[in-house]
Design a protein around this nucleic acid. Structure first.
Lengths: 181, 181, 181, 181
DNA sequence: AATGAATGAGTCTTCATTCAT
DNA sequence: TATGAATGAAGACTCATTCAT
């Protein structure tokens, strides 16, 4: 029995299944066989047909995850002009994402760890928005003098360790002290 | 041609080769074949002879790496009683390790990521010494009130992102501000 | 050069080759390599493709063997109502199977010996039909009083040692004496 | 630490360990590694030193098992002249051996199954004594006319299936009926 | 747009045996 | 008499990809 759907719908089905498999089992264990099983597809051939190779699939998964995360962050921080409020909002929003979109967050980390070539691109994605806000804050005299790149990366890596909303609030307190100095 | 060396020497040769392979290629790609090639051994059977299984080998690699790192840290911080000086010394020493013992540091991270059962033990190894110092500092009134667990984990993850001595100094400044408040 | 046949045909080819290998070399020595060689296949990967794992293959082999044996026995004994005639027919038919379908008979024994979990199921297959007939014969007063389970198992194991039609006839005489008493 | 014992004592230690391993795990799984572990020896090299190869070890194991079994049977049947009593005694003594010397009985079967070259020799060992008694019984007119070889083999294989003393008694009844006719 | 079938390379582990004291 | 160390071959199984419709 041969079920035919549109190219776009099939690609989405596969990337979503791949996202869940990567989040649950890790990048290395996300084999075609496991993805096919999770998605209920007929054979791995279906993946090979819709994606050039495994790297192509992973890029699609990554782009989708980044899109989702970016959208959520933009929605959360839109209109916030207060620098300190922005910093707290950024950290708490990121921590909140771990709860609301765990698969997407996990996928971004997994791919970053396992495809080192992407590290710089992903680093900028994770840190760019924050760094710009920190620089603005320094210009306005709200934040002390510090190396913006170091601060942004430290905040980002600190967020990765969070496991609860309380942790997020404590983290925000910590970095507000460090930034306002 | 059969070359015979002592058990201890052979085990050390293999664990060192494995350490380098893990650091260079990652835990998942550290196959017996790659380790044997890197060490110039005759066959993978030599690893199976000296280690019960792959997990046994990885434990030996991990213990060696932890031993090296722990020894360096103890040597660096021995005799430092000033709390703020200790905090700076801890961070800078850790960052320095990334340069002087990159393979050992990488191995500890790789194994922690890929053997989740060990995560709690390794977390304590990475964070325990620091957390005790922070708590002491709070009792002495040198450090402000903050969640020691969050602070220690944030410092540890911040260190992982460092890539130079300058970065280490800036990180120390950052966390001294956050701790002294 | 890639030769493509249907799933069913390939499975049959593999199970038949496996049957012959098990019969000739024993369960333990029936490796994928030997089966592939016997069947003239390109690589062991072909077996892994068509069967989930080795146990899956062995179950397919066993089911085929049981099917063949059961079909032959049913054909031989269909319509026989005379209890003593049935007993003789059963024993001689079983002995005859050793000559006409040696591989199937050998496979059932080998798998029973090497997969102890299946022993009860196979024991029932080997002994169930016979035990029912013996019980009926006792009810009808044709057979003496004896433990049906012991008798059926003894008959079955006696058959295993047979090596000729004469042996089969002698065996039938023996057990008719033992049953009629 | 090097412990030195006599050749004979060491061979006995190894054959006994091998006997237990074969009985517990089967012939195929009785590897040098498992035997060494069971016996608490320092390395597999000790086996290679005392036995030419694995076949040599297995012969030693088999001879020891046969010796034990033969001795018990001789003790049990010595002085029994009554033919029918001898037949019952033989069957019940064999079934009793399954309980008192399970390892030795298991070893003989395992080796017979896995070393087909020995089958004739072992068949004679298992069947010879019994066949001679049956022939004598026929000459004395106590037993009916039947093929002694078939009867002896059937009795022997019937015994293999026994699992209790009751089973043994029932088996003796069965074969007395079949022999006395 | 989809599929069934096939594949070579690679994974770790176990095996009995041999080398060299 | 004993031992530590080393070994090549073989075991089942998984991988992403390609062939051929």
């Amino acid at each position: 029995m041969q079920v035919t759907v549109t190219e776009a719908a099939r690609r989405k089905q596969i990337t979503e299944a791949a996202t869940e498999v990567i989040a649950a089992a890790g990048y290395q264990r996300a084999s075609y066989a496991r993805i096919v099983e999770h998605a209920g597809l007929s054979s791995t051939r279906l993946i090979s047909y819709h994606f050039r190779d495994k790297n192509d699939l992973m890029m699609a998964v990554l782009i989708a995850a980044i899109g989702t995360v970016d959208e959520r962050m933009t929605a959360r921080l839109d209109g916030v002009t207060d620098r300190v409020g922005m910093l707290r909002g950024y950290i708490e929003a990121q921590v909140d994402l771990l709860r609301t979109h765990p698969a997407q967050v996990k996928v971004i980390r997994e791919i970053a760890q396992n495809l080192p070539d992407l590290a710089p691109v992903l680093a900028d994605f994770r840190v760019g928005r924050l760094a710009r806000q920190l620089t603005q804050g320094q210009r306005e005299g709200v934040f002390a003098e510090f190396d913006v790149r170091v601060m942004a990366r430290t905040i980002a890596s600190g967020i990765d360790g969070a496991d609860s909303e309380d942790y997020g609030r404590e983290l925000a307190d910590l970095f507000i002290r460090a930034c306002v100095g």
